[in-house]
């Protein structure tokens, strides 16, 4: 395998594996938030705000993988 194809393969793998964890995390986070909204609809505003903060932090992990994939393809 030459360096160019190894780079492309690495970019694909980093994106695929790197989005696995955040995807599971987002699913857990949002399902728990919806559960608690269903249980206590009167504090849904607070829960939604905190859910978005959590989404932002969880999503960042996938985006690091995305940036590394971009670097592998275009810069390295």
């Amino acid at each position: 395998m030459d360096a160019e194809s190894a780079k492309l393969l690495a970019a694909g793998i980093s994106m695929g594996v790197g989005s696995l964890g955040p995807a599971l995390g987002l699913g857990m986070l949002i399902s728990k938030a919806l559960e608690s909204i269903a249980r206590q609809p009167e504090v849904s505003g607070d829960i939604r705000t905190n859910m978005f903060i959590g989404i932002g932090v969880t999503e960042a992990v996938a985006l690091y993988a995305f940036v590394i994939a971009l670097i592998l393809i275009f810069v390295a």
Binding site: G56, V57, Y64, V67
Partner: peptide, 13 residues
């Protein structure tokens, strides 16, 4: 890093 890269990567993607 995370604050800037999150916004950038979301819009770029």
């Amino acid at each position: 890093v995370s604050l800037s890269v999150r916004l950038f990567a979301n819009m770029l993607a």
